[in-house]
Design a protein around this nucleic acid. Structure first.
Lengths: 351, 351
DNA sequence: AGGTACTGTGGGAGCGCTCCCATCAGTGAT
DNA sequence: ATCACTGATGGGAGCGCTCCCACAGTACCT
């Protein structure tokens, strides 16, 4: 971590030019060595590397960005208030995956919150200035204008989840359909006969797919689907309580519930308890996300796990591809740019 | 959030030069308007602003950085693994304060983790490249080489807390001494006669000052200080348990404990419970930090609150001053650059 | 009338790099 | 010996901005 060598005569940081003089080569050659071009002889490369070490040369990023028209930075944009970012494990997992994958490269990660209007304004300005080479968009709602802004500005972007079945942006999603199916399949195999579903917000595509999976799971078991067993919530605890209450009114003989999120499951649990029902003896309960809540619930909650960290890694891979690709476009189809990672049922005591 | 106007004829983003041509003025004048120089007539300014709006001009940050030798970005360096960053409310509070203060300016905030050796290596490279104008250093241990690296590179920096009484860097600290005193004073006023102290790590200056405050608090009350009442911990829950156990062995008649952190207080609470003592009836308990733990403890924990968000704001103010100041140095003393913000006792049921 | 002092403005120079073209030496084919 | 062709290298041009000097214009003194 020491600063090498002496400062160049000019007093400031050494420049490419000075390294070139020191190594007895031209400026272009030093540039080639710095950027790892293969078109340099071994002897020359060694001489340049020695000069770089002696002078403690570090490239000037601003100059590089100006000349090459790239920034070597990407942004992780969180269109949420900061509080949610810290509260939900989703983001920290995502950040871990992204950070890990990025540490293999020279790219710098920027974390940008765009929860308030003011922050969004700043972000728009930021993007218009092209201060990043690409953007990772997490937790985007169906009607968010951000994705369009990005394509307008021709900034490569990858989105987590999809806004609809016809998502146009490169995306990384988890298999919400499969997750929903697996949950139901599990409940059926445990001998549960009347299985309700507390759905998430229906303007979130992933929530729709979980419902689809729930339906298919029942059909696979040769059962009929009664739509009154599906009650929409809004991903919140309060929404879970309301939906659960309604569901119990409709079906007092309910013996299993699949909730579209762990938080909703927590709300449902309260209502079930208050109604005198035991978990899992009377009613089995399954959540979604496998968050900390699931592990700490009493009893521990069976939940569907999304490989969030891995999704983060995949998003970076896709994004770097997009950035590298920048050809006349349409050279590759979208098929390869939309990933769906498997979801996995984590069975605990609640089911 | 729309992109204004049409693209310039050259196809890419409009440049200063193009704005100048459009407004019928020189390049320098446009630059003056963009940078808010007062040396421009009102008429000219209006013409330039119109041209900027029409063309949707956004300055090229790279070019500006290169020419002006500044980046308009500062880094918040967290020398901890990411997990701690998300786990401890300290960081989110700090980030909130910093973000709020910074949103008044054009500065960009970078969040950099330097928990692992590898990350520190990257950070060193990053700083050597002068990719930020200044650095905010939070949670720095006494022997961390980072502060020295920064002064060597002549990068303005502000540190949270102090490494010792002779801290050389500009810093923002909270009044740990006053906080310790207030805690003891409160316990004395509640009629407690034998007050123990679970200290933090003694290589952390703030922890030392809390001990000093504890001592002075007792002296103020006209009591003698028995050093055996002070047991060092290490800020962890386990450390709190160990220290508490030891303290009870030494003084079975203890009726109050001041812990150097909420987490240690949580450990102490366990031991007290197991020994059959009730809180606060038999033993009063006070923590430090006023974190979420304190509010959720049973009974809710009296704790000393540090104004962390405000500290974040203050750090930004100091840092921006440092950056703006960059004169031959030594023009201002250090006195004005070391802030100590008051700590405040939050009384709850545990005392 | 000339001198002095300011304000507002234009534009040259230069920040440190990448890109690309010209050049050169070496190699094998004619 | 001549002619491609190759790989390695040097260095000009230019990225878009800021800084600063020069200069015109105006105002106010002597």
């Amino acid at each position: 971590m020491a600063v090498h060598g002496a400062r160049s005569r000019s007093g400031g940081r050494p420049t490419l030019e000075e390294v070139a003089a020191r190594a007895g080569v031209g400026r272009g050659t030093v540039s080639r060595v710095i950027n790892g071009s293969p078109r340099v002889s071994d002897a020359t490369r060694a001489a340049v590397e020695a000069a770089v070490a002696e002078l403690g040369y570090v490239p000037n990023t601003a100059a590089r960005a100006l000349a090459a028209n790239r920034t070597d930075a990407i942004a992780l944009v969180v269109p949420e208030p900061e509080t949610r970012f810290f509260a939900e494990p989703y983001f920290s997992d995502m950040l871990r995956g992204v950070g890990a994958e990025l540490s293999e490269t020279e790219m710098q990660l920027l974390l940008i919150f765009a929860g308030s209007d003011r922050e969004r304004q700043r972000l728009a300005q930021y993007l218009a200035a092209h201060r990043v080479d690409g953007v990772l968009l997490v937790s985007v709602h169906a009607d968010d204008p951000l994705p369009d802004l990005l394509s307008q500005l021709e900034i490569p972007a990858v989105i987590s989840g999809r806004r609809s079945a016809e998502e146009t942006l490169p995306s990384v999603d988890s298999d919400n359909y499969g997750g929903g199916r697996a949950a139901v399949e599990h409940l059926v195999s445990r001998g549960r006969s009347r299985i309700g579903h507390l759905a998430g917000r229906m303007d979130v595509y992933g929530a729709q797919r979980r419902v689809d999976g729930y339906r298919q799971g029942l059909r696979d078991a040769g059962r009929e689907v009664d739509d009154r067993l599906i009650v929409p919530g809004d991903f919140t605890e309060e929404g879970g309580r309301r939906a659960m209450t309604l569901l119990l009114e409709r079906f007092p003989d309910l013996d299993a519930v699949f909730a579209g999120s762990d938080v909703m499951a927590a709300g449902a649990r309260q209502v079930l308890r208050e109604s005198g029902r035991r978990i899992p003896d009377d009613v089995a309960l399954i959540g979604y996300d496998d968050s900390a809540i699931a592990r700490h619930m009493d009893p521990p909650l069976t939940s569907v796990r999304q490989p969030i960290e891995e999704m983060g890694r995949a998003m970076i891979d896709l994004l770097l591809g997009e950035i590298a690709d920048r050809r006349p476009a349409a050279s590759r189809g979208l098929e390869k740019r939309q990933l769906v990672l498997p979801a996995e049922l984590v069975v605990r005591a609640s089911s």
